[in-house]
């Protein structure tokens, strides 16, 4: 490992250790929350909700995976950076000979990995539920490569977004505001719980402005084999947005936004 790679790997390692050592705070809550979602919406209410071509639990699972993955990817990046700023220990990174790109890559990759692990956990809970219930068909992965591609891109995107949140926040309340008033509405109006084509044409078009729709519809296609939007369009849009956000992150670090006086 070269001298410069060592710095990048060390920061990624530090970031991963931070959440891996606290599974009760990081992995257990979303697992329990999503198990509850599946019990209520999938099992108890699911039989009463009609969705064309599939059971409701199969329909909502991709959305729940997206919801959990992006929330944790965003939360990890924003919290880690903001907490480091709040307690000023991010200076350990700032004063090190890491390039600004390396700093961003480390925060984004480690946060995206956390989102991916959450996606795997929620997927596992879904598989467990459908296998335990005799009336349910097991969860399938129609396009496994696309499943991986979507999970990777959406977690990278929200990790990159989380970096901006972590740099922008001036108080812990700001992190809550971003989660409650930006992320959550996007998720709930992102076709997680309803099919996009159930909406009127106007709201269908309006929904296309919501990046969450591309994520949910893309992963839905990858898992179920059908969705309202073309998955290639979804993956393309999400990849472009991710690239823009990572570039913006690097520029913010370079100019010391939220980091330097």
């Amino acid at each position: 490992m070269s001298v410069r790679t060592t710095g990048l790997v060390t920061l990624i390692h530090r970031e991963i250790l931070r959440y891996v050592r606290r599974p009760w705070n990081t992995f257990l809550p979303p697992t329990i929350t999503n198990a509850l979602y599946l019990i209520v919406f999938g099992v108890i209410l699911g039989g009463r909700i009609q969705v064309t071509g599939t059971s409701y639990i199969h329909f909502i699972l991709p959305g729940l995976i997206v919801l959990g993955a992006v929330s944790d990817a965003f939360q990890n990046a924003s919290f880690s950076i903001f907490h480091g700023r709040w307690n000023e220990y991010i200076h350990e990174v700032q004063t090190a000979p890491l390039s600004y790109t390396e700093m961003v890559v480390a925060y984004v990759l480690s946060s995206a990995l956390r989102g991916t692990l959450i996606a795997v956990l929620i997927g596992a809970v879904g598989v467990l539920f459908t296998n335990l219930l005799p009336s349910m068909a097991p969860i399938g992965f129609a396009h496994p490569f696309l499943v991986v591609a979507f999970v990777v891109v959406i977690t990278l995107l929200f990790a990159s977004f989380g970096v901006i949140g972590g740099l922008w926040a001036e108080d812990f309340d700001h992190l809550t505001v971003m989660n409650q008033f930006i992320i959550r509405p996007l998720v709930f109006f992102g076709a997680v719980f309803y099919p996009l084509n159930d909406l009127s044409p106007f709201w269908q078009n309006a929904s296309l402005l919501n990046p969450m729709v591309y994520m949910v519809e893309g992963l839905r296609f990858a898992m179920l084999g059908s969705s309202t939007l073309d998955p290639r369009v979804s993956l393309g849009v999400l990849s472009v947005v991710t690239a823009v956000l990572v570039t913006l992150d690097v520029q913010l670090f370079k100019h010391g936004f939220g980091l330097t006086d």
């Binding site: 070269s2 710095g7 790997v9 060390t10 920061l11 530090r14 250790l17 350990e92 090190a96």
Partner: peptide, 20 residues
């Protein structure tokens, strides 16, 4: 301005690691 998440030995290892 020290990393509060880790024991001090690990904080030093991380700091050294950032320097390659």
């Amino acid at each position: 301005n020290v990393d509060r998440f880790f024991p001090i030995r690990e904080v030093l290892i991380h700091k050294a690691g950032y320097h390659g």
